[in-house]
């Protein structure tokens, strides 16, 4: 059966949420989704049905997101606070004592974390925790962990050094772990910001 515009248009909201998570900018994400849908319409004949429509569209979207990330680097208005958050890891100093060993908040074991994956509430907490990361940190984290890009490619696309990239990924993992530890595994309610 031939693919129609309606078949792809129905995934617009999914594509938009996916793009916003990656780009942290609703306007840019809207543009990227629009480009994706246009590209899909132009390639309707090429859709072979070997994957689902959603998977096919996600593949197109990922390429558009990478292009958008490259453009964002060149527009300082889109990537705010370029240097403020990049090198300073003092936010996490309070976790450690003066010798650099864990203080009173040493990581405790998370009970049955894999069971969380089937709980819709967990995903809401996860999304909110991820949303709290600074834009640049979140973008590097999403490029590495969601798009699966290698460090060299991220550095090239965002025009940052490998050290800088490593610091941003450390910051992302530390803050996301802390947030989930507190608001999901620790049970403290998470208010939307």
């Amino acid at each position: 059966m031939a693919l129609t515009f309606q078949d792809i248009e129905q995934h617009r909201n999914y594509l938009l949420r996916y793009a916003i998570f990656q780009l942290r900018d609703e306007t840019v994400a809207e543009d990227v989704v629009q480009d994706t849908l246009l590209a899909a319409v132009e390639k309707l004949e090429a859709f072979a049905g070997q994957s689902s429509v959603k998977t096919w569209l996600t593949g197109i979207l990922k390429h558009k997101i990478i292009d958008a990330q490259r453009r964002m680097v060149r527009d300082p208005l889109l990537l705010d606070a370029r240097t403020d958050e990049d090198g300073d890891l003092s936010d996490f100093d309070s976790l450690f004592d003066t010798q650099g060993h864990w203080g009173s908040d040493a990581p405790r074991s998370w009970q049955s974390p894999d069971q969380s994956l089937s709980d819709q509430q967990f995903w809401k907490v996860y999304e909110e925790c991820a949303r709290r990361m600074p834009k640049r940190t979140a973008m590097v984290f999403a490029m590495r962990e969601m798009l699966g890009q290698e460090i060299d490619d991220i550095c090239k696309n965002l025009d940052i050094t490998a050290t800088n990239c490593s610091v941003l990924l450390y910051r992302a993992r530390m803050s996301l772990r802390l947030c989930l530890d507190k608001h999901w595994f620790g049970g403290s309610p998470l208010e939307k910001t």
Binding site: Y18, F21, W110, P113, Y126, F141, E145, R177
Partner: peptide, 14 residues
């Protein structure tokens, strides 16, 4: 273990 779990979670998020 926890940062490994974060990778699993993030890949499944989509």
């Amino acid at each position: 273990k926890q940062i490994g779990f974060l990778r699993t979670v993030t890949r499944k998020f989509g």
